[in-house]
């Protein structure tokens, strides 16, 4: 049962990511709702979605390096994450696979393709490996999300979180996001196929340090 539940959530997260972060295509010849580039970016964004503690530290880091960012807003976001015990209940454990957080999304993509939510395209290198994967989100998908999924209360958190992530991290490419994630030993030092440790203590220290306030 757990696997079914997890597989469901994977499908849910990936489609919401693709929907939220896709570039809108108003005049695509095939009538697609939007285009999303690279699998790496899916993986990187999914990581931020799955680990609210990493998201929190990334926000602090962004704030530290960018004075235009509203510190108060960041403070409230992180405070809320911890008040809602997200690091305890929202974490979706992810295994690290060789170079960073990686979980195959092939079956999810295949499923999404099979139900006509997305189409995907890729260029192949001479050795046969694909690169520069492009995902096309169909109008049918967009309409079903808008008309059905967005109305389900339990799913609202995913849309809100994706909007939040989009606000602060959309400007980064997939590789850039990946590189940022590698800064954290809890992420980079983990051996093959182990779950990533939480960095709650680091966040709490950084938060207290920046805002002179204790997290819950």
């Amino acid at each position: 049962m757990q696997d079914s539940l997890k597989e469901f959530r994977n499908r849910l997260r990936i489609i919401i990511i693709l929907y939220t972060f896709c570039e809108r295509e108003n005049n695509h010849p095939n009538g697609y709702y939007g285009i999303f580039r690279t699998e790496i970016k899916i993986q990187a964004l999914d990581f931020l979605l799955r680990y609210p503690d990493f998201l929190s530290i990334e926000l602090i880091d962004l704030m530290d390096n960018d004075s235009t960012i509203n510190r108060e807003e960041i403070k409230e976001i992180i405070k809320s994450i911890y008040e809602n015990k997200e690091p305890d209940i929202r974490v979706e454990e992810m295994e690290k696979f060789f170079f960073g957080a990686y979980e195959s999304i092939d079956s999810v993509i295949a499923f999404l393709v099979s139900i006509g939510f997305i189409k995907h395209d890729s260029k192949k290198r001479t050795d046969g490996k694909t690169y520069d994967k492009i995902y096309y989100i169909t109008q049918d998908c967009a309409s079903k999300i808008n008309n059905h999924l967005k109305d389900i209360t339990a799913v609202k958190w995913y849309f809100n979180r994706c909007e939040l992530i989009k606000k602060y991290f959309d400007k980064f490419s997939g590789s850039e996001l990946k590189d940022r994630q590698y800064k954290y030993t809890e992420y980079s030092d983990i051996s093959y196929q182990k779950h990533i440790k939480n960095i709650n203590e680091k966040v709490k220290y950084a938060f207290s340090n920046r805002f002179n306030l204790q997290l819950a």
Binding site: R9, A110, V113, K144, I152, T153, A154, V155
Partner: peptide, 21 residues
């Protein structure tokens, strides 16, 4: 997670398989 599944699973299960991926 179960609540989420109960509430939202139908979103996917009610869809037909249309295309061979």
């Amino acid at each position: 997670n179960i609540g989420l599944y109960i509430d939202a699973e139908s979103f996917f299960s009610n869809l037909d398989i249309k295309v061979c991926p």
